[in-house]
Design a protein around this nucleic acid. Sequence first.
DNA 1: TCTTGACATAGAGTTTACTCTACATTGTAT
DNA 2: ATACAATGTAGAGTAAACTCTATGTCAAGA
Lengths: 127, 127
Amino acid sequence: MEYSIGDFSKLTGLGIHTLRYYEHEDLITPERNSSNRRCYSDKDLTWIEFIKRLKDTGMSIKEIKHYAELRAAGDPTLFERMEMLVQHRQALNEQIAMLQEHKIKLDEKIEFYRNEIGRVNNGIIEN
Amino acid sequence: MEYSIGDFSKLTGLGIHTLRYYEHEDLITPERNSSNRRCYSDKDLTWIEFIKRLKDTGMSIKEIKHYAELRAAGDPTLFERMEMLVQHRQALNEQIAMLQEHKIKLDEKIEFYRNEIGRVNNGIIEN
DNA sequence: TCTTGACATAGAGTTTACTCTACATTGTAT
DNA sequence: ATACAATGTAGAGTAAACTCTATGTCAAGA
């Protein structure tokens, strides 16, 4: 299947402007038809979903761009790409661990609020 | 204990400029001494650590500012503040869940790379 | 044929969260 | 007393990641 930029935008949830911006940054390079319109493929779809994943896990556009360059260079860069992902996984693990700690503290804080509110309410009732 | 902005900066890991910026945004309002220098207290320290936690879990400065305003208004806003935190916890839980899914996909991708690299290497050896 | 809507490019503008600069003032060590 | 480091304010500058505007092209329906 091939998609116009409008269709691809709906498909991916990324704005048209964002897609063009990503292309400008060499993250993705869709084919063009005879009238110079962008033709996104299913391969592009898979690729952009992966880009979204990297972004959502905190990788910067600059880093993704680097990854995309390696990808464009083909097999010789397989190892380097894997290394990038392994490093990114490490960062992701740390991020998850940090958030889980924060979550515990937040739970505690909410519990504290629950008690405070109870205390204040009792005060009101007693007066 | 009281701290100068320099000491407080080292204590919190936030830059002096950032601390002043946070004050400008009304996130924190340290006392001033007779010569108009900022005097941060241990209460400020606890507060800024909480701010850092909110930030690290994805709350924007604008939202934190709102929370800070409620906090400054005292007991009458206890419930509203708790509600904010409960909502933020919800967002945090979703964020963690999303990252865990991404982690699984990333693991799979890395496994895929491991196989690809093995395949390519075998090709080289066989030639 | 004419108009409309999607698409094209180049470049400007926006938002967030800092980060830095310029310049004045003050506290401290020599 | 003097130099120097830390602090003060106001406002400009930066980086990232979009997001929008102006202007132009082109294919398809009324």
